[in-house]
Design a protein around this nucleic acid. Sequence first.
DNA 1: CGCGCCTTTGAAGGAGCTCAATTTAGGTGG
DNA 2: CCACCTAAATTGAGCTCCTTCAAAGGCGCG
Lengths: 247, 247
Amino acid sequence: MPLQNAQRKVSSLALVKTACSNCNLREFCLPYGLDPEELERLDSLVSNRRRMKRGEHLYRVGDPFDAIFAIRSGFFKTDVLIEDGREQVTGFQMGGELLGLDGICTEQHTCNAIALEDSDICAIPFSQMESLSREIHSLQHHFHKVMSREIVRDHGVMMLLGTMRAEERLAAFLLNLSQRFTARGYSHAEFFLRMTREEIGSYLGLKLETVSRTFSRFQEEGHIAVQQKHIRILNVNGLKALMNHRS
Amino acid sequence: MPLQNAQRKVSSLALVKTACSNCNLREFCLPYGLDPEELERLDSLVSNRRRMKRGEHLYRVGDPFDAIFAIRSGFFKTDVLIEDGREQVTGFQMGGELLGLDGICTEQHTCNAIALEDSDICAIPFSQMESLSREIHSLQHHFHKVMSREIVRDHGVMMLLGTMRAEERLAAFLLNLSQRFTARGYSHAEFFLRMTREEIGSYLGLKLETVSRTFSRFQEEGHIAVQQKHIRILNVNGLKALMNHRS
DNA sequence: CGCGCCTTTGAAGGAGCTCAATTTAGGTGG
DNA sequence: CCACCTAAATTGAGCTCCTTCAAAGGCGCG
């Protein structure tokens, strides 16, 4: 029974002492801007790390909300499903980014969060986070900024879905990934996609065949080299130019 | 110089003493869940009301952010523009809803907020709001819920734009408006649209002609009666059924 | 009352979808 | 270590829904 074994393995590793202070993603995450003493107080909240296997759900629609999650390593997608089976991917998240903000308003999660590769996450009990942010102004303010940034990101996705053609959407998507990988110290020009064409399509409001065809066209035009999930950006400006051209 | 006159008129009315405690929208707004004593403290922040004429900007992209705004009466749209002139309407806001949350993350507004009818808004200085929410737990928590609700709403719009056909989008739009009007004590079946077909189209990722044609089709099918901006919903269940039908 | 903006409606065209077949990659068990 | 198997990706052909372009009608505001 491989599943049970996996479960057992997960639980034995479920509680690993960890700390923001030694996390190299802290500048992308909640601890941003805290001084060492404040950081230590945050550490005391973020006491447990959880390992997740590829394909596992961090939470599902309807799960009770009581913590937000920070990605220590790995890659996630969040999605919403409707009855008839349609899926909308609402975002792809990587190291240093927060998951679970959708659950605050109803005390239940309103989307699913799924690991797209083996990942490592920190759980931050939300009510304790609220308490602490009443005492540490910079934590409070930064948390507000993170939520606001999520709203602004969502506006960007609406722009994408509402006004852009397929080429523009995919160019924007690649440039966004590139920029986020770069910020984390990875190559800006070469990376592996963690998601399938179908998931990209769902995020961008396109069918997987359209995503595949558009990748091929980008390759023919010399903007990128693509081989399955491996992407190399050959001409950043070419991609940027694609985004500003009407019709 | 009518513009200058308008300006002068606005400034003379710019500071009107007002209070959450006598606002009948307080249950939809920031004061939700506060006890009378807490409400009074919030009142001391929300001390000025501002009247706005139809078409006026409450703020623009790039404006410095220092306050969030609550709509006391009226109707707004928020939008984002790209260089080539394309517009994405990111939302329509009505009484009791907050505007300006997009500005927190960069301390500058990232979208435009425009009054679609003569409106009345309350400005809440943000840093004072943060201070107060460090002292009033329920204010803090409710504010977090409001931001989270905005994120969840955005996910709904993504679903709309990413997976739905024109009919479904417009049905969802009408049902959403109806539900919000109902919650505020207006008729659930009859209302005036404050926005043009083009603005609806921009919000829904459709062209204005498609919006118009789809309204006409809904009318032919007996779901609604539409005459210009006046809408009467004749068959709520018909509209709901439209949303769940694949193809 | 006239002008401009908004809306409606028609006809033709195209971007992306659907359906289908083939290729490729990655994981599994012998 | 190889052969198998399944999931993912690619590519083609035809179709559909929405867009584009165009013209006419209606409403509201000065």
